[in-house]
Amino acid sequence: MESTVPARPRRTAVVTGAAGGIGLECARLLLARGDAVALLDRDRRALRAVTEELRREAGDERVVSAEVDVADGFALREARDDVATRLGTPVDVVVAGAGTMAGGSFADGVPGEWADMIEANLTGMLGTAQTFLRDLLAAADAGGPSDLVLVGAIAGSIGFPRFAVYSAVEAAVGQLARTLRLELGERGVRVHQVQPGVTGTRLGATMSDRAARREWSALRSAVPPADAAVVARTVAFGIDQPPHVTIADLVVLPTRQDALLPTVQGAPAPSRSRWGAR
């Protein structure tokens, strides 16, 4: 049968957390499909390396980068202006992929680490969403697709012992997505929430609690993690749908994860429920 899929429009995307993990894979995939991508991250060295690599593959005009800490509202604003000048085309996809993870028992938790997580994962996401909102609304008003992709985690929907603050923050992201879907949906902006389970990225590599770090890497060896590239494909799938259809929640889990941790709130805990998700 002949395929009657209409030609996919060329998108202009802003990806935060683009120097690694899910953000990087999203950027890579979008570039490979012919879209233009602005890479935002706060790690200067990694960002520089990644930008060079992607420019070699995709050319200089479609790849733009800016060193931005998403918690810094002013830097986001400047980045927005910068991206608009350099990319030329209006932004119609925003992938908020910046985030960190830290764990440990709540009693021993370090408040500064929690604050960093809340800043990067939640405050940063709020800043990102709001900063580029006008561009997204303009794209929706012009009749084309307009997508806000919030990368959260399955941890926000389940009990994740010893990662209490992280899962609280991700739950906040989930609720944000839910509400924004209502608020922005009527304006034509689609809000997707991606909730990955354990994914093969460097997330959690810098947490200060040694026991939690060990627990996390034990989980990653026990459950073959999902690839970040797969998560990027689901993001691409979501943004490719016709503008009047939203794939609201994209939950991407390693197949074996359920055996170690219930992914549904209230399911009976299996015998070795010492690990968490994402």
Partner: peptide, 8 residues
Amino acid sequence: EAGLNLDR
């Protein structure tokens, strides 16, 4: 201020 766990 530095965000330490004061009990620890």
